[in-house]
Design a binder for these strands. Structure first.
Lengths: 337, 337
DNA sequence: AATTCTGATGGAATCGTTTCCATGAGCAGT
DNA sequence: ACTGCTCATGGAAACGATTCCATCAGAATT
């Protein structure tokens, strides 16, 4: 039924054909020293046999499987998909495979995934963290090198752990500046009652919003949502009904933006006439909406790419990389009526 | 600098602690036969030492690394992201890691990726194939079990290879029915001059369109595009300018749908007044468009899930699985003016 | 000429698991 | 009591690479 399952050609075959020892073959192939003549004979035999070193053997010996693991909350979210694409594209240039896991923004699932990563002896992880310090500290101690992307862990009860987590490099979009720019743009248009829809875990953005609003802040206009479409819609719809006096809203991500557009349409709130909308993250459909959505664009692909670069350069661990956001003005904001 | 790098606990440690041989530990842990008393002692030691078998050792021994590889053209495309999500969710229940590669719809990159898969001794692949039979036959001969998703390979010059490729299971959306339903819907509204925007590689859908149109078919209204945003836009814009007499258009995927919406807006073609639009694939933003887009929905997540199920059940290889599509009528189609 | 040094080379150990095989104990059937 | 049978069990081989270490030849130094 199945194929005759031809035996793989191993390093031994190459050694035999070239008339040298396996050690020499290994050295030649991994750039060690060898005489020109030997090198040629080995290379010749290798190509002739179409030899490809088995990653399995290498991995076992080196006690670590190559490759990069990537943990994202939701791969169907365009932002994380672009982030993943960035990781993939950098990893490709290193010829490293990428294993992807989705956490659903759930610390428990995340812990579970990290566990199976360790089982696989993966030692390079890029994560959009959902869990807190308590969850990541053991992983670090287990020897894997982690880079955070898009978020970093914030809550951290035990004092000893803070240090180890500060050592974790992170690649972030400049949330603070992004939020500030958006808020300033809206206040510049005359808006005073500005809502903020944020997902749990978007601590940085929420904090930045509070700061940027200053004395205009109305705590009742800051509504949290869980990481699901339903929860996002409920948050948006609830806010619009509870406080029909708001004239502008900023959403912490594109799912909440989608929810806001839908809820506004449902409640017959016109954008931008009745409500100005700024959404975090410039997804392709932002331009297709009518009106096209004004957004705070994040370099999602770059975030992924840079994170992958960082996780590959194990040696020197640079500080956090902060990438700029950009306010892209389209048609979803108008002056306060 | 880095952690003290504590040695991993191995099966040997467990054997020692339980006072048995390593073979016995292995048997107990993988469900072999053992006396009740021994089993308990081993299990006890294993939990006490927090032992997790190293996937590396196992993989080398079994000559295959576990896990599933997934090859998609573009992970930022919502359709493939949902497909990937389905694979991920099935794989999780088997506790199998998933390695993702993007092919960019380029046979060369695809071949490259398959090569590195073999290097990793991956033997389970789910692929949205870009290359033809010549490219996949060697991979099959090398012993990996492949499941195609969304597409299957069609062109196949050598007669001997046809058979082996027919043996590859595939999980597909019912393109033919989907296209037929859409075309019937449009003709039912009175449309006669219907355009079709398709990407290269969407052979099945193109063929189905030709069949469904019957004698209404105008070959000039069938325009191919390459797999890029620019090419998609050029195709849509070109069609609309060249043939202002068309009253309806069907797009072969969501990127072309996006391009059609944009091009129509740019050329001041109103939807649905001047042009009715049906798009393949129900992406979330289809509902956000105005008017909301009428679409042929595909069960992307299911396709991925089923493909993963198939690739896990190595034994019996079922025939092709065909999943239904569904026409979701929203607001982008109107009667012919 | 004797010595030291350098660089190439191959044998063998090693990584952690699974699995083959031999051993021995216990038990039932004759 | 002897044979045959079924189990549980542990030792050891195997997987395929890397790398330590010893060896050896030839060149350079004394």
């Amino acid at each position: 039924m199945s194929s005759p399952a031809q035996r793989r050609t191993t390093i031994k075959d190459v050694a035999e054909m070239a008339g040298v020892g396996v050690a020499t073959v290994s050295r030649v192939l991994s750039g060690g020293s060898a005489s020109a003549e030997t090198r040629e004979r080995v290379l010749d035999a290798a190509t002739k046999l179409d030899y490809r070193p088995s990653a399995l053997g290498r991995n076992l010996r080196q006690q670590r499987s190559g490759g990069i693991a990537l943990l994202v909350p939701d791969i169907t979210d365009n932002f994380y998909a672009r982030l993943a694409d960035g990781v993939l594209s950098c990893a490709r240039s290193y010829r490293e495979p990428v294993t992807i896991g989705v956490t659903g923004d759930d610390p428990e699932q995340e812990a579970d995934l990290v566990g199976s990563l360790l089982e696989q002896s993966m030692d390079r992880v890029i994560a959009v963290p959902s869990g807190d310090g308590e969850m990541w500290a053991p992983a670090l101690r287990a020897g894997l090198s982690v880079v955070f992307a898009d978020r970093r862990v914030w809550r951290d009860p035990a004092p000893g752990q803070q240090r180890v987590l500060d050592e974790v490099p992170a690649v972030l979009a400049d949330d603070r500046a992004g939020v500030r720019t958006a808020v300033e743009y809206l206040t510049g248009l005359g808006h005073r009652k500005i809502g903020f829809l944020a997902r749990h875990g978007q601590t940085q953005r929420t904090r930045a919003f509070r700061t940027a609003m200053g004395e205009l802040l109305d705590e009742e206009l800051v509504v949290p949502a869980r990481a699901s479409r339903d929860s996002a819609y409920a948050a948006a719809s609830g806010l619009f009904q509870r406080r029909p006096d708001i004239t502008a809203v900023l959403t912490g991500d594109n799912m909440l933006g989608e929810a806001a557009v839908l809820a506004a349409r449902e409640l017959d709130v016109r954008i931008p006439r009745d409500l100005s909308l700024v959404m975090f993250d410039d997804v392709p459909w932002a331009e297709l909406c009518s009106p096209p959505l004004t957004v705070v664009a994040q370099p999602a692909q770059d975030i992924g790419y840079r994170a992958a670069e960082l996780v590959m350069r194990q040696g020197r661990r640079p500080k956090t990389v902060m990438l700029p956001t950009q306010l892209i003005i389209r048609g979803s904001c108008g002056p306060r009526r």
